[in-house]
Design a protein around this nucleic acid. Structure first.
Lengths: 93, 93
DNA sequence: GGAGCTTACGTCTCTCGTAACGATT
DNA sequence: AATCGTTACGAGAGACGTAAGCTCC
């Protein structure tokens, strides 16, 4: 499970469209399709209902989307907080 | 920023000892040392005070440790929840 | 001198993009 | 016929382990 895969998943979950998301993320369509599929295989969970032509987020996918989105936001905040503390370093007289 | 790097950071932050943590994680000492350093370089923040022989977690490091630990737990929970929903799939008559 | 962190280097795995295919509308 | 998702393959980048160097107790 890679961090980038999780970001990719969030974007695809919002649009339910790989081609469109690939353009937005500036990566190729196959690379994005593979990332999502490998994530599902590794976790042993299918997040999308596939009919060989389109994707639809299922209940597991919706749950995962919600939880992972919060986790990613938390990581972003952790970085921002650390950088802020780093800026203040030595600012106390 | 890799997910594995964050896990490594959490472990090293707890012990403040790379060698010991490397044995526990079953990776080499240099690989672990590099992972931590690369994480710091990428984020532009130093998490440890170094005196060329030992490490000590600084305020930025403590903040990051706390926040990232919660984020990683949230990711774990997200996976568990998704798997649970997957098991229940089709269980409703 | 022993314990600990870092740098150098070769190898190997993995990810990506291009190309080709199958399916659906 | 056109659009969308998936698979195949070659190339490039990245991560790890071994070996070597340097510092502190």
């Amino acid at each position: 499970m890679r961090l980038l895969q999780l970001h990719y998943f969030i974007e695809v979950a919002e649009t339910e469209n790989v081609s469109q998301t690939a353009k937005k993320l500036h990566i190729s369509q196959p690379a994005l399709s593979r990332s999502i599929r490998e994530l599902e295989q590794e976790l042993g969970v299918e997040f999308f209902s596939r009919n060989k032509h389109s994707l639809e987020l299922n209940p597991q996918g919706k749950s995962f989307q919600h939880n992972i989105q919060k986790a990613l936001e938390m990581i972003d905040s952790a970085v921002i907080d650390a950088r802020r503390l780093n800026e203040l370093k030595g600012a106390v007289p």
